[in-house]
């Protein structure tokens, strides 16, 4: 037996040349003014101010990917960024609660979005499961009905979210809380205020954002349950008239509920009930389709 020839060590290919900065922020943004919030596979998310020094915003920056051809990279970045931004503006115009778009540069790869103060539904659910107070049952149900309403409105417009998880649904702190508690009981509200969940948070689990919430029995947290529901992170959004895509949206959310805690699962029925009311004509058939998706999983056209 001849000995196998020793392979020459494999060297990583040199970094391809790119004209855009690599994890350096695009001008005019600089690192000292931006506070990193989170990052996903495609985008880096920062918090900063925009237009006035006291308007908090989120900057979502899609850095160039050096392993792609520069032309292709620019085109993909532009397409995805614009798909997200256009969808946000379109559904905002129709009255769905989503963060507003304040600025965009599709050549530079950044998008400026409204900053929402509050917490994700995932965080709220986790807190609710931990210290489950029966008196909050009704409030949670109300919250879930409003979640279903927002999704129904979105789907009614023929827009699918594409990544509908509990981390991508925010409960916005009602304005009267931030004004009233800041004067009367600053200490009680501080855990809530200290925790600001980013609005374009794709991988909420990644950044360890969901630390134990404040005691659910405290007044500020039950007041939080009255906050408005906002859908965030439209990075994977598609315009679709197909029931299948909408049903998959709901299915993904259902799985996210089930993954939180068995106790959270009944709450999802509230979401569906409210969805049926607000989703317009198509809602019935979407819900019927959901039955089918449940049986087979979300990938329909998987062959081989």
């Amino acid at each position: 037996m001849a000995e196998a020839p020793i392979a020459t060590p494999i060297e990583p290919p040199p970094l391809p040349h790119t004209t855009r900065p690599l994890h350096n922020l695009p001008p005019p943004f600089t690192h000292h003014a931006l506070e990193p919030l989170t990052q996903g596979a495609e985008a880096l998310v920062y918090k900063t101010t925009f237009l006035t020094p006291h308007t908090p915003v989120v900057v979502k920056y899609r850095p160039p990917k050096p392993y792609r051809h520069a032309t292709l990279d620019r085109r993909l970045t532009k397409q995805r960024l614009l798909a997200e931004a256009r969808s946000l503006v379109r559904v905002k115009r129709e009255g769905v609660h989503v963060p507003g778009v304040l600025g965009a540069d599709w050549e530079g790869g950044w998008l400026v979005l409204e900053f929402l103060e509050g917490r994700s539904v995932r965080g709220v659910l986790d807190g609710w499961v931990k210290g489950r107070g029966e008196e909050e049952e009704e409030e949670m149900k109300g919250l879930m009905r409003r979640v279903g309403k927002e999704i129904g409105k979105l789907h009614g417009l023929g827009v699918c979210h594409g990544d509908l998880t509990t981390s991508n649904i925010m409960v916005r702190t009602p304005t009267f809380i931030s004004t009233s508690t800041s004067t009367s009981t600053p200490t009680a509200s501080s855990p809530l205020h200290g925790k600001q969940t980013p609005s374009t948070l794709r991988e909420a689990a990644m950044c360890g954002d969901e630390e134990p919430p404040p005691h659910p029995s405290s007044s500020s947290s039950s007041l939080l349950l009255h906050g408005d529901i906002y859908l965030i992170d439209f990075g994977l959004t598609t315009s679709s008239i197909q029931d299948e895509d909408k049903a998959v949206d709901l299915y993904v959310l259902e799985r996210a509920f089930a993954a939180t805690h068995p106790a959270a699962e009944p709450l999802f029925h509230q979401v569906l009930a409210s969805y049926g009311e607000w989703g317009g004509k198509g809602a019935r058939s979407v819900l019927r389709r959901l039955e089918g998706v449940r049986l087979r999983g979300r990938k329909r056209s998987m062959l081989g």
Partner: peptide, 16 residues
């Protein structure tokens, strides 16, 4: 506020 938000979005995306 809602109106302003939509307007800002519209002008930010102009020319895309």
């Amino acid at each position: 506020k809602e109106m302003e938000s939509v307007i800002l979005g519209t002008i930010a995306l102009k020319g895309s």
